[in-house]
Write a protein that binds this DNA or RNA. Structure first.
Lengths: 145, 145
DNA sequence: CTTAGTGCAAAGAATTTGCATCGCC
DNA sequence: GGCGATGCAAATTCTTTGCACTAAG
């Protein structure tokens, strides 16, 4: 598994600060979503691992993905239907096709200024924002034409 | 029920263009979410209507909310847990408390320029964007202190 | 050895669907 | 009368949980 600095720091923190165990199954689940931009569901991660000859229980996939999300190593996305998981915990944006529900990363810089958009924030502490563009993917545009 | 021009136009379009029926139940469901800023779930709409002496089946609430969303009269929000429904179909933004999952409207102008952020859009047609700020609501800040 | 992780099956929550009946034009 | 809407219960889908067992430090 190849990881970046932020991930290494995350792992170090986990190792030092808690009794979190970085087991073989957790490595396998992490490896199964690393580098993917298709934001797989728990079920899809399960299928991937079985196809690679790494049997795992679906319950463990759910528990592991949730645990990784709790540790900030992956991100949970709610977009209708099953929850999806993003291997990239750093802030970035998505595109959602409202016809086929394709969900993918977009290449756009994080708009820091948006977090200061709310002047009358009534005591709410803003930690960040999620931005998702929606529309039609090329395939669905063709099908509609 | 009080409605604005956009809603009236929506109703006119439905009436003219399809065999969509604007029945008593559909009025009741619409009335049950109109003017609310708490984005109720289907279950909550069901509870509201029963409390008002308007018995309805939960399946009908689901079907009606989905139908209203299909017609563009309400918006479906996916935020983890049960789907929520927003009586305001016009573009606007939300705040989500990541501790208690409170979800409410925020008063910030629509950032039209964001829809032109993607220069290399590879044939994707952008129709709009969803922006949700997340953080801690005042109540949860207190509980954490 | 002690505590966390895993598998399995069952439970649970959220949502949809089949079908008989009802209501609107 | 005919088609869409509704209620009810069953089915489906997605996710969590209880418990016995395994594995990591």
């Amino acid at each position: 598994m190849r990881v970046d600095t932020a991930t290494i720091l995350g792992i170090m923190q986990i190792t030092i600060m808690s009794n979190w165990q970085w087991t073989r199954k957790r490595h396998q689940v992490m490896a199964a979503i690393q580098g993917r931009t298709d934001h797989p569901t728990a079920e899809e991660v399960y299928q991937t691992l079985h196809a690679q000859g790494h049997p795992i229980s679906l319950a463990t996939v759910y528990r592991t993905l949730r645990a990784l999300a709790d540790e900030g190593l992956v991100r949970e996305l709610h977009c209708g239907g099953a929850d999806r998981f993003d291997p990239n915990p750093k802030p970035h944006y998505h595109f959602l096709c409202t016809r086929c529900h394709l969900l993918l990363d977009v290449d756009a810089p994080y708009q820091t200024q948006l977090d200061h958009l709310l002047h009358h924030d009534q005591g709410f502490r803003i930690q960040g924002h999620m931005l998702t563009f929606y529309g039609r993917c090329p395939t669905c545009q063709e099908k509609e034409a």
